[in-house]
Design a protein around this nucleic acid. Sequence first.
RNA 1: CGGAGUAUAGCGCAGCCUGGUAGCGCACCUGCUUCGGGAGCAGGGGGUCGAGUGUUCGAAUCACUCUACUCCGACCA
Length: 465
Amino acid sequence: MGINISLESTVIPGVYMRLSRYFLPVLRDVPKDAEIASHRLMLRAGMVRQQASGLYSWLPLGYKVLMKVQKIIEEEQNRSGAIQLLMPTIQSADLWRESGRYDAYGKEMLRIQDRHERDFLFGPTNEEMITDIFRSYVKSYKDLPLNLYHIQWKFRDEVRPRFGTMRSREFLMKDAYSFDLSKEEAVKAYERMFVAYLRTYARMGLTAIPMRADTGPIGGDLSHEFIVLADTGESAVFCDKRLLGKPIPPQDTDFRGDLNPIFEDWTSHYAATEDMVDMSEFEASVSEENRVSARGIEVGHIFYFGTKYSEPMKATVTGPDGKEITVHMGSYGIGPTRLVPAIIEAFHDDDGIVWPVSVAPFEAVLINLKAGDDACDTACDALYAELNAAGLDILYDDRDQGAGAKFTTADLIGIPYQIIIGPRGLKAGEAEIKHRKTGERETLPIGEAVARLKGLIEPQRKTDI
RNA sequence: CGGAGUAUAGCGCAGCCUGGUAGCGCACCUGCUUCGGGAGCAGGGGGUCGAGUGUUCGAAUCACUCUACUCCGACCA
């Protein structure tokens, strides 16, 4: 699937990231079919291309963002103790017959046959397959707890795909699955994921609120959705204002320790989606000035579902007393291909996207205002080399185009900082830095530009919140 | 799955009502001049008008069928 190429391999300074040699098909006109801001901007910024209803190609700029989003997810999953693997997209129908979901799942599941007319399906989720892997190898209580995850393409044949990659039929999902000896232990696993999710969204600059949720077809009795507030959100949500801006569990949080106080702290405030909300409870438990009624985008969903799959699929381990124990499971999903538009919904203005540094396709764009001019080219080439050497992720706009076009492109694709070199400033030995988010501009000696940019960018990478 | 709509160059659109040599803007190519907020001038290339059938001397245009896509509602990372 090509998603496992490391981020580093896509960033080879000085070769591919000259815009004149890059592949960035920005659109001037707004495609008429795109209704919401993130979809419009993803098309205009040349991030994705629709191939059919609910199916998208990720073009270089979009793919680069997607990779950064995935990297953050992986880091936080790993930190919490989850272990990454990779399962196939195509699954055998027999597995799903074991759990009883082959018939239950309905038309959303894409069913296919191979040349021998054996039944297969394009996986919409992986509970069955991971349970099969688990039961094949794990036999002892000593091997628990265990949490396995992967990031893989899923396919759900949605009745009505819409909003670009926000709700596509094929989508990437990080799905983690926990295995524990008891409900109490499983709830601890649930709490670990809960905290990992809080950190994951925060690192992307998002405020995501965990809300009690319906367990739906996956089944079970404990479930939270993580919701980013946005006017274009698909569901109405109701929560306590005090959840907004709540401090995120820090990097040194001990995932082997007791996370229940954090969980209790976050879940003690009322928060529910429209499916689950009880208005009288909402009004009773939240004072009027703290009531938030808004719309939100679901960017994650976690479930504890006990033995729903382990029971029919016979996923058991031997306990200390020699007796068989049916394991308790949970599953935990985040959609990277949905997070990208969700981030754009949260961060854009009239001119385009305004990426948070941590997920920006490039951290800064070096704009050569007069490509072809010896002085400008020389200064920019040197600066570009220095910026790369400083470890910054830089796009170099060396195109032979007018200044306006370059500014417009830089604003549209939302690079956090623009470092501008033109003949005018060059005579004075000066560069200009524009902050995309605020519009603020600062002029400084060229020699100080690298250090200044580094100083601006590094604290915002949020690698260590 | 119910309701509504759209389909003409890469993108955005006009032309259709009232049938008669397929157009505009942007993008693209060539040349010159430009170069601090999507540059100007000149020249040029690109279309079986979503598909099929029918009516007609003649169909982008009229009729019928199909397909794809979008939007609104019920379901989902």
